[in-house]
Amino acid sequence: MFEIQPMDAQTYRQQTRRSTLIIALTFVALAMVLSTAAVAMFGEPGGDNLRFNIGGVFAAVLLMAALMRKVFWTQEWMAPAVYSWQLKRSLMSVTNVMHHVTAAVEAGDPTAMKLLRFYHLGLNQMHQLDGNSSDHGQLAREMEQHKVRMEALGLDTEQTQLDPVWLEAVKR
């Protein structure tokens, strides 16, 4: 179950820039070392060694994928980027069934209403974290209208957790 966590947007952007820089520098270093090693081991002096350079870069891509999954993902300096990825995945899981959600909300289904509230809160946070204010006005109006409707029905508006059961219930 994913839960929206409070996060300062400025700190988030600073930390994700740092983690991006670390990953990029690691990839560049790996690509250079592996390409150089491939050319040294298999290449010809003065010959066309492009395929060995490309092979080194490809090996660096594979190694970086393994490092991301096994090492970097659990590091403290990656926590904001991991959180962002999980938030976006959660939002996408709701987006994928949004036609069901909107129909169920119109029918007054409390589960769908909770799901839509989570979606609004998560999307709002993602916009804040990414510094995307272009659609904020429209989202704020939709959020407020939906919140008022939930309050009128006596539903809790603090839906910071995404329960996967809600997604399945709305699909039916």
Rank of each mutant, 00 (worst) to 15 (best):
M1S: 11
F2G: 03
F2A: 07
E3C: 12
Q5D: 01
Q5M: 06
D8P: 10
Q14I: 00
Q14E: 14
Q15T: 04
T16R: 08
S19E: 02
T20I: 00
I22A: 04
I22L: 12
L25I: 05
L25F: 05
T26M: 03
F27I: 01
F27E: 00
A31V: 01
A31N: 03
A31D: 01
M32Q: 11
L34S: 02
A37G: 14
A38D: 05
A38P: 12
M41Q: 13
F42H: 11
G43I: 05
G43E: 06
G46N: 09
N49C: 11
L50P: 05
R51T: 07
F52H: 13
N53F: 01
I54W: 05
I54M: 11
I54E: 01
A59C: 12
A60W: 00
V61Y: 02
V61P: 03
V61C: 12
V61M: 12
M64H: 12
M68T: 10
K70S: 09
K70E: 09
V71S: 13
V71D: 08
V71K: 13
W73C: 11
Q75Y: 06
Q75T: 15
E76W: 11
E76P: 15
A79E: 10
A79L: 06
A81P: 05
V82C: 06
Y83L: 06
S84H: 13
S84G: 12
W85H: 15
Q86S: 13
L87T: 04
R89G: 03
L91F: 05
S93W: 01
V97Q: 11
A103F: 03
A104W: 01
G108W: 02
P110A: 02
A112Q: 04
M113L: 14
M113S: 09
M113R: 13
K114R: 15
L116Y: 04
R117A: 02
R117E: 03
F118E: 00
F118P: 07
F118L: 04
F118T: 06
Y119N: 09
Y119T: 05
Q125H: 06
M126T: 01
Q128C: 04
Q128R: 14
Q128N: 10
L129D: 01
D130R: 14
D130M: 11
D130L: 08
G131Q: 07
S133H: 12
D135P: 00
H136I: 08
H136N: 08
G137K: 13
G137W: 00
Q138A: 12
M143G: 08
E144Y: 07
E144S: 14
H146G: 07
E151T: 15
E151W: 01
L153A: 15
L155K: 04
L155T: 04
Q159D: 03
T160E: 06
L162Q: 05
L162P: 04
D163V: 05
D163L: 05
P164S: 08
V165A: 15
W166Q: 02
E168I: 05
K171V: 02
K171G: 15
R172A: 12
